[in-house]
Computed example of a mutant assay.
Amino acid sequence: MNTEKKTALVTGGSRGLGKNMALNLAKKGIDVVITYNSKKEDAEAVVSEIKQMGRKAAALQLNTGDAKSFDRFFNQLKAVLTEEFQTEKFDFLINNAGIGIHATFAQTTEEQFDSLMQIHLKGPYFLTQKALALMNDGGGIVNISSGLARFCNPGYSAYGTMKGGIEVLTRYQAMELGSRGIRVNAVAPGAIETDFGGGIVRDNTQVNRMVASSTALGRVGLPNDIGSVVAFLCTEDAKWINAQRIEVSGGANL
Rank of each mutant, 00 (worst) to 15 (best):
R150V: 09
A106P: 00
K122C: 04
L134S: 13
K89S: 10
F92Y: 15
E84R: 08
L77C: 02
F126E: 04
Q52Y: 12
K78V: 06
L93H: 05
V32S: 01
M135R: 09
N153W: 08
G147P: 04
C152P: 00
A131Y: 06
G54M: 14
E49K: 15
F85D: 10
T109E: 08
A45R: 11
A103E: 13
G139T: 09
S48R: 15
F73M: 06
N24Q: 14
G155W: 01
I99D: 05
S69R: 08
T128R: 05
A67S: 14
A79M: 10
D31M: 09
E111P: 06
L81V: 05
V32L: 05
K19D: 00
S38L: 09
S14Y: 03
N95W: 04
G12H: 04
Q112T: 07
H102D: 09
L17S: 03
F113Y: 14
K19L: 07
Q118M: 11
T104H: 06
A106I: 09
T109K: 11
E49R: 15
N95L: 06
K39A: 15
G29S: 07
A133C: 02
E88Q: 15
P124C: 07
L77K: 02
N20H: 07
A22Q: 01
I99A: 09
D71A: 10
E110V: 14
T108K: 03
K56A: 09
A149G: 13
G98P: 02
N136Q: 14
F126L: 11
T35S: 04
S145Y: 11
P154A: 03
L134R: 05
D137S: 15
R55P: 02
G139Y: 03
A106N: 07
N75E: 13
L25T: 02
Q76V: 00
A26S: 08
G29Y: 10
K68A: 14
